[in-house]
Computed example of a mutant assay.
Amino acid sequence: MKTYEKQYVTTRFIIIGLPLIPVESLFVVDDMSYIELGLNIKSIFKTYLAWITFAIATILLVGSQFENVFPLSSGISFFIGLISLIISIYFFFVFQKTTEQENEVRDLFQKAIGMSLLPEYFNYDKSFDFQKKLIQTLKDKFGINNWRNTIKNNDYNEAQLPLLFTICAFQHKMSKSKISQENYDKLLNEYKNIA
Rank of each mutant, 00 (worst) to 15 (best):
T10N: 03
K173V: 02
Q181V: 12
A50W: 14
F13A: 04
K192V: 02
E102K: 15
L72G: 01
K133E: 12
V28T: 00
A50L: 02
N193E: 11
T3A: 12
L20W: 12
K126W: 14
L61G: 02
M174W: 12
L82G: 08
D185C: 01
L117V: 13
D31K: 15
F91D: 09
L117A: 11
A169I: 00
V94L: 13
V105Y: 04
S77P: 03
G75K: 11
W51E: 08
L164R: 09
K133I: 14
L26T: 00
P19L: 08
L187D: 06
L118R: 04
I83L: 13
A57G: 14
G143T: 02
M1D: 05
E102D: 13
W51N: 13
L39F: 12
K126T: 06
K192C: 02
L37C: 03
F45I: 03
G143N: 03
E100T: 05
T98W: 06
R148H: 15
K178M: 05
I16E: 04
V62P: 03
G75H: 10
Q101F: 13
I151W: 05
R148W: 07
L82R: 09
K178A: 14
S88F: 08
K176N: 11
E67D: 12
P19H: 11
A57H: 12
V94Y: 15
I113R: 06
K111P: 00
N146W: 11
I89G: 12
A159V: 07
G81N: 04
P22W: 13
S64W: 07
H172K: 13
I135Y: 07
A112G: 06
L138V: 00
S33W: 09
V23K: 10
Q136T: 09
F54K: 01
N193V: 02
N103T: 09
I21A: 06
I87D: 02
G114P: 07
F109N: 08
L61Y: 07
F109Y: 08
I35P: 00
M174E: 07
T10G: 07
H172M: 08
Q131H: 04
T11C: 10
N193I: 01
G17W: 12
I56E: 02
I167H: 06
N146V: 13
Y156I: 09
Y156N: 00
Q65E: 04
Q110F: 15
